[in-house]
Amino acid sequence: MSFFFFRNGQGMNEPHQHDEPATPEPDFRCGMVALVGRPNVGKSTLLNALIGFRLSIVSPRPQTTRHRILGIDTGEAGQILYVDTPGMHRGGRRAINRSLNRVARAALDEVDLVVQVIEAGRWTEEDEALYALLAGQPVPRLLAINKVDLARDKAALLPFVAELAASHAFDAVHYVSARRRKGLEPLRADILARLPARPAVFGPDEITDRSERFLAAERVREQLMLRLDQEVPYATTVEIERFQDRDDGVTEIHAVIWVEREGQKAIVIGQGGAQLKAIGAAARRQMESLFGRKVFLKLWVKVREGWSDDEHQLKRFGYAD
């Protein structure tokens, strides 16, 4: 039994055994693909673009993705199960940083192919460390050079990639712009061709194995990342306390925004509650668009000192390996 969210906006809040997919053609392919990279290279934007659905939350801040997100892309020739992972980063000393790195590493053990995502024209020590980690994986490795539309000197990309390819063993290199949805079809076709011949795992309309409750919490957290300054959004997490479909067709959601200090609580609430009201209004609109129905959202802000460096609290808030 699991939770599933469907492409047509019909989510399932109760445990649901998904329908068996139709019998595929003999050459139908299916497999799991990890999208990996250092923080803020555009993995979540790439996932959303590849599946044609805004599943993962996105912000300009690194480490926006904190969980393993599965995005399902089903076509006539196959089913690609994309796994969006937290950005691998070095130097994080808090328990949450270690947890996110463990989640990203664990995703590599269950996939049939890995796509390392980097920024056009940039190869950093973090990129190199991740490449070294991938070297031990006995699966195809593709390189997706993202944000090519933002490269000032596009002519410089050719020697950059040539030097990179000469010293690193990628099976193929793809130029993409996830934001503008450019270069995605060749990447998708290459991925599918390298996956094993295997029946589909999910039904044709299923888009993720995450529940609406999880997606609601992520929409609130996205607004925190977009609207709060400096380190405050990194000290926040969201817990859904109530998620109920009422008889009037409205989904009632109660959510707690946890922070680590009283001063952060005041910032999240804002003068006269203005900041919290804006966060709630924007998150509610996103949920209504995602779920396809009216949402009543109630937010509270509470303090739990040191939650991000406490393994027990991390498990409570869903940060499991």
Score class of each variant (00 low, 15 high):
Lys147Cys: 02
Gly270Gln: 04
Glu25Tyr: 00
Ala169Lys: 14
Val176Lys: 06
Arg152Lys: 01
Pro39Ile: 02
Glu126Asp: 14
His312Thr: 13
Ala106Thr: 06
Arg122Asn: 00
Ala107Asp: 04
Arg38Asp: 07
Val301Tyr: 12
Asp84Arg: 14
Arg179Ala: 15
Pro39Arg: 03
Ala193Lys: 07
Asp84Ala: 14
Val111Phe: 04
Glu128Thr: 08
Pro39Met: 09
Thr251Arg: 07
Leu55Asp: 11
Val114Ala: 08
Leu50Pro: 00
Glu262Gly: 07
Ala235Gly: 11
Gly71Glu: 02
Ile267Glu: 03
Gly87Trp: 03
Leu157Pro: 00
Gly292Ser: 07
Gly249Ile: 02
Leu228Met: 03
Tyr82Ala: 06
Gln17Ser: 05
Gln313His: 05
Pro199Glu: 04
Leu47Gln: 10
Asn101Ala: 14
Lys277Ala: 15
Val36Arg: 10
Met287Asp: 05
Gly71Arg: 10
Ala22His: 01
Glu110Val: 12
Ile207Arg: 15
Arg246Ala: 11
Lys294Leu: 04
Asp153Cys: 02
Met88Ser: 04
Thr237Gln: 12
Glu222Met: 14
Ala165Asp: 08
Met287Thr: 07
Ser289Gln: 12
Val83Thr: 12
Gln17Phe: 02
Asp245Leu: 15
Arg29Gly: 03
Ser211Pro: 05
Ala189Lys: 15
Leu224Ile: 06
Thr65Arg: 05
His89Thr: 10
Glu305Ile: 03
Arg304Phe: 03
Asn8Leu: 09
Arg90Tyr: 06
Ala34Leu: 09
Leu276Glu: 14
Thr64Lys: 05
Lys298Met: 12
Leu35Pro: 10
Arg285Glu: 15
Leu81Trp: 07
Phe160Val: 00
Leu142Trp: 08
Arg284Glu: 04
Thr251Glu: 00
Asp19His: 03
Glu260Ser: 03
Phe296Arg: 06
Leu224Tyr: 07
Phe5Tyr: 15
Ala104Gln: 10
Arg66Asn: 10
Val41Gln: 07
Arg54Thr: 13
Pro60Cys: 03
Asp321Ala: 11
Gly292Asp: 09
Ala151Trp: 00
Gly42Met: 10
Met12Glu: 15
Arg66Asp: 10
Ala172Ile: 04
His254Met: 10
Ala151Met: 09
Lys302Thr: 12
Asn13Thr: 14
Arg38Thr: 13
Ala320Met: 07
Ile118Arg: 09
Phe28Ser: 00
Val268Gly: 09
Ile257His: 00
Pro86His: 13
His67Lys: 07
Gly75Val: 11
Ala217Asn: 05
Asp27His: 00
Ile96Trp: 03
Tyr131Lys: 13
Phe3Tyr: 08
Ile69Arg: 02
Val117Leu: 14
